[in-house]
Amino acid sequence: MKKHMKLTWAYIFVIVFGLIMIFPLIWMFFATFKDNKELFGSLTILPKAFSLEPYINGWKGSGQFTYLTFFANTFKLVVPTVAFTVLSTGIVAYGFARFNFPAKRILFGLMISTMMLPDAVIMIPRYVLYNKLGWVDTYFPFWVPGLLACYPFLIFQQIQFLRGLPRELDESAYMDGCNPFMVYARILMPLLKPCIFSVIIFQTLWRWNDYFNNLIYISSVKKFTLSLALKMSIDSQGASTPWNQIMAMSLLSLIPPILLYFFAQKYFVEGVTAGSIKG
């Protein structure tokens, strides 16, 4: 009886708050059918009429390329970056969490502190460097930092989760003849699934939505990603913007990350309870 009541409250909570959470998406969906005057002039959520035109015109893009190109480019940029990041940050986190080596504290401090300087002032020297490496107008400025674990947030995150796993696990694996790399790959990584999936989701979202780095490093329109494409027809200085088309394309651009999250989240709840953690 008591348990029943509690569940009811839980449902009421998740539904009421869920509505607040989903409201922007609903608003955005209906906004794709409004012209500028209706969009900015009234507060009503439902549009006067529905038409697929904003989607069709929006998809055509401006100029030479359709959104097909921009979606494909975004995948080309994001997927390798995320794959590299997961591999590199995982192994680095393992190194920091489980081993004690010379200068570890200093190196760890150095890693964390690279997050503490605002991007705005690192942007220019970084561009100079990447330009010297010949990376401008390629996706290397995104792939290589992924490969070389330049995401301290994700390393630190995995360190914290690794430290939640008992060391007895490692010890018994060593007894079985595993080397340190095997311990990570065979024993710890599977237990870190919830954490690793959150790394995948975070990194995907960041790269997917990242505007400023894309802006700086990508010049050719044929290499534009979604975040650039969505802003490429907004000239606040002199022309009226077809907001309904932009909203329509923004909405479409959200679909892959939403799907990713929807299908990845079951791994958050498939935790160590299923595995053998009672070391």
């Binding site: 192994i91 680095v92 920091f96 890693m111 070389l148």
Partner: peptide, 30 residues
């Protein structure tokens, strides 16, 4: 240091290279 500390250093190598090659210069320049 732990028994396998050299392994630990190998594991953090990707980050260390990334730091030296990609991150250190912009930080110092700023």
């Amino acid at each position: 240091y732990s028994k396998n500390w050299k392994w630990g250093m190998i594991f953090i190598l990707p980050w260390f290279l990334g730091f030296c090659i990609l991150q250190a210069y912009p930080l110092i320049m700023s």
